[in-house]
């Protein structure tokens, strides 16, 4: 029964983390210097309706009861109503989330496709110039403010060179032309058979996802290098060489297979990081995703929307952590 026990431990951990996240968003919601009663009723409410509303919102209850009520509401999918859009926050978040998902997914693919080979290459050439060059590039990548890089990239590739279309997910005249089935424009366009719109959406996606992806290249490359160096020291690598295998097959066939599992964890974590990093990227590229939704709500002090969005990003974060943990157990023969 050790599997059952491990499963239970995992479940308890996830539940505790979610509860912790709820506690944090709840407390942030309480320290806001905005009176929720007044924002619901308007400034000219009389004392009687004020007290009534206060009771209705549960603000006269002790703090822990208020928290339980909050957890109950969230469990039922009630994240409150957005002041800005006058719609339930959950509805808003579900509508904008696919755009962020699309951006972050393409970005993490770019990050992994560039980062893993770079890390392997650096490890194989340890201490020689390719290693130093990749390390320096990684440090540079980690020092660039992503919103500034986005602006400069727009200036160069859109305004000066005209290689890519401007901000947004598709050109203005294509907007709303395909039904939002998945909410992911590229997929929806393909489903509708609109190849023109698909290519237009891809062109719009290239720059923001590349900028966002670059951010994870450095991290993925660095972790890959470290894992790879550990593996290349192992005796089974000598065994593979004794067999007469080429260095390429020793590295990519034997060593990489051993780091596949921890690498998946790293990629899952950087995926989570990219979902979060999309806040600034979306702002620069006017990408109508969760990040832009949260920042717009921030600027108009729409706390329900901010906290709802935070909660959703946090939940996705935790889910990705859980997923990488499960994959680890599923894929590593030693952990099975």
């Amino acid at each position: 029964m050790p599997t059952l026990k491990r499963g239970l431990t995992l479940l308890v951990t996830v539940a505790a983390t979610l509860l912790g996240l709820l506690l944090v968003t709840f407390l942030i919601g309480r320290v806001v210097p905005i009176d929720p009663v007044l924002s619901a009723l308007g400034d000219r409410a009389n004392a009687e309706s004020y007290a009534q509303m206060r009771t209705q919102l549960g603000l006269d209850l002790p703090l822990w009861q208020q928290f339980l009520r909050y957890v109950g509401d969230v469990a039922q999918g009630d994240l409150g109503t957005s002041v800005l859009t006058s719609r339930p926050v959950l509805e808003d978040v579900l509508r904008v989330f696919p755009a962020t998902l699309e951006l972050a997914t393409v970005a993490v693919v770019i990050g992994a496709v560039l980062g893993v080979p770079a890390g392997v290459f650096a490890a194989v050439n340890r201490g020689r110039w390719p290693d130093h060059a990749i390390r320096l590039l990684g440090l540079i990548g980690h020092s660039l403010p992503i919103f500034w890089l986005g602006l400069m990239a727009l200036l160069l590739f859109y305004a000066k060179l005209d290689w890519v279309p401007g901000p947004g997910r598709v050109d203005v005249f294509y907007e709303g032309m395909v039904d939002a089935v998945t909410g992911i424009v590229t997929v929806d366009a393909l489903l509708a058979g609109e190849t023109d719109i698909f290519w237009n959406a891809v062109q719009h996606l290239v720059l923001p996802s590349a900028i966002l992806g670059l951010y994870s290249v450095a991290y993925i490359a660095r972790m890959t290098r470290g894992f790879m160096l550990d593996q290349l020291r192992q005796e089974y690598i000598t065994t593979a060489r004794v067999k007469g295998m080429s260095e390429t097959r020793v590295v990519w066939g034997h060593a990489l297979r051993n780091i596949a599992v921890p690498l998946i964890t790293v990629i899952a974590l950087s995926y989570a990081g990219l979902l979060e990093g999309s806040v600034l990227t979306e702002t620069v590229f006017a990408w109508p995703g969760l990040g832009l939704y949260i920042t717009n709500s921030l600027l108009s002090a729409d706390m329900n929307a901010v906290l709802g969005g935070t909660l959703v990003v946090g939940a996705v974060f935790i889910a990705l952590n859980l997923l990488s943990d499960l994959l680890y157990r599923l894929l590593d023969p030693r952990a099975r």
Partner: peptide, 24 residues
């Protein structure tokens, strides 16, 4: 050398715990 390794000269090492690839 790669043709010689394995095909003409082979080597058995000390501890199979480390000399076998753990995930194959």
């Amino acid at each position: 050398m790669r043709d010689i390794r394995g095909r003409r000269i082979a080597m058995v090492m000390q501890d199979p715990k480390y000399s076998l690839n753990p995930v194959m």
